[in-house]
């Protein structure tokens, strides 16, 4: 068990623990805190997957913008919702999760046994891949091959801004 593996296990526990807290907790504020923990855990996993740029972008965008936005909404709506009741109990939820996972394992096993030889194999990598994907490469990719998704996402952001402005004007114009 090297130090790297121990940190890796802690990261995975943080990710899954945060996801559990986000889904199972009684109050919205704790759900949001669980979501933030999950996002930090996923940022850690991105570092293990050789992409530090993506890890920092995950923290900047998700934790820095999206989670703060959700937190703002929780605080403006919030003081009435400290402990909403859930529809199912925790026991039923865990049982549903277990059944879903077991059936998924059986399905995957069936697929692997039937079609196992023709599926693409994972490449067992050496410690450092020979070609490091840096920020410059991702930038080049955006301007050479993925120009269309890039333009579409800028269009999407413009539409989202316009929608948000319209919603704000609706809420003010109803008075």
């Amino acid at each position: 068990m090297t130090v790297g593996e121990i940190i890796f296990l802690i990261t995975i526990v943080a990710t899954l623990g945060g996801a559990a807290m986000a889904v199972l907790s009684g109050s919205i504020v704790y759900a949001m805190m669980g979501l933030v923990t999950t996002m930090f855990g996923i940022a850690g996993l991105y570092v293990f997957l050789n992409s530090p740029f993506l890890s920092m972008m995950q923290i900047l965008i998700y934790v820095g913008a999206v989670s703060v936005l959700i937190a703002f909404a929780v605080m403006l709506i919030g003081p009435l919702y400290r402990k909403p009741k859930e529809w199912t109990t925790v026991g039923k939820f865990v049982a549903a999760l277990g059944v879903a996972l077991v059936s998924l394992f059986m399905f995957v096993r069936f697929v692997m046994e039937t079609f196992g030889d023709t599926l693409p194999q994972g490449v067992p990598l050496a410690e450092n891949p020979s070609f490091e994907i840096t920020t410059k490469e991702i930038g080049r990719l955006f301007f050479n091959n993925l120009v269309l998704p890039f333009e579409l996402i800028s269009l999407l952001v413009v539409v989202a801004i316009l929608g948000a402005i319209m919603l704000a004007l609706f809420s003010r114009g109803n008075k």
């Binding site: 920092m56 923290i59 900047l60 934790v63 820095g64 913008a65 703060v68």
Partner: peptide, 20 residues
């Protein structure tokens, strides 16, 4: 770290959470 300034900017948004 070779994404140094992004580390600083990303973690400065964590201080917002502690204020919250």
């Amino acid at each position: 770290i070779n994404v140094g300034i992004l580390v600083i900017l990303a973690f400065s948004s964590l201080s917002m959470f502690s204020i919250l």
